[in-house]
Amino acid sequence: MAFRRGIARYRVTQLLPLLVWVGVLAGVGRPHGPPDMGPLLASVLTALTAVAASAALGVAAGGALAFSPGGSRWRGPLSMSAALPSVVVGAVMLHWLGDAFGLSPGIGLVAAGLALLCLPQTVLLAQESFGRCRATGEAAQALGARPSQAAAAVYGFVRRELMGILLGVAGRALGEAALVALLAQGLLERGRLALQAGTTLASALWYLEITGRLRDARAFWPAALLLVLSAIAAGVAAVLAGERREGRLR
């Protein structure tokens, strides 16, 4: 019994640190150690969280805006926000949030940042998709439906496009999460901020590479595959839900 409790305590103490960068980025303090799963795990978890958050919020907001009077007024600000260079902004935001609120830069924080950065793009694309079904949405509103209920009524028409949106957001989130994870690893190992004046993302990565601190890049392929498969699974689930509503599946 004591042995089992010891094992359980060991697992808890080993797994809990995974929730923050320091724990995720194993190998800190032993930069020349063998490649590990730290950045891989961090990238996948961060990206998945960001995708889930931005897809859910973005699709709902896009649908509601498409059928709200004056919803088109948001298109300009959303387009501009979607065009922000999110890799740099995300990395800076990570530190700004850390400095401003004294938060530890963990998966949750980075995922929230990424979700926020992916959100304008998701909202915009969802708004466009739902907007193409305006006639049917109007028919729902003529029955007394609110904008969000009208969006739910036309969901079956846009489910395939939404799958594409999910895939796009997933790809973006994975790429950016991986870069942020690499950067964070570099920051932790070097003990200082990499994004100083005159330091670009590329030069930071190059520095990590030549000093042997960049982990085996091939380790990201399984992560990419896993994320794409997850996004496809989410998309297929969305499509099947639409089929069920249409009555093609019984």
């Binding site: 049917t136 079956g156 028409f157 509503r245």
Partner: peptide, 9 residues
């Protein structure tokens, strides 16, 4: 302009 659902729905 039916909704993409069953007749019942």
């Amino acid at each position: 302009n039916p909704f993409p659902m069953t007749i019942y729905q």
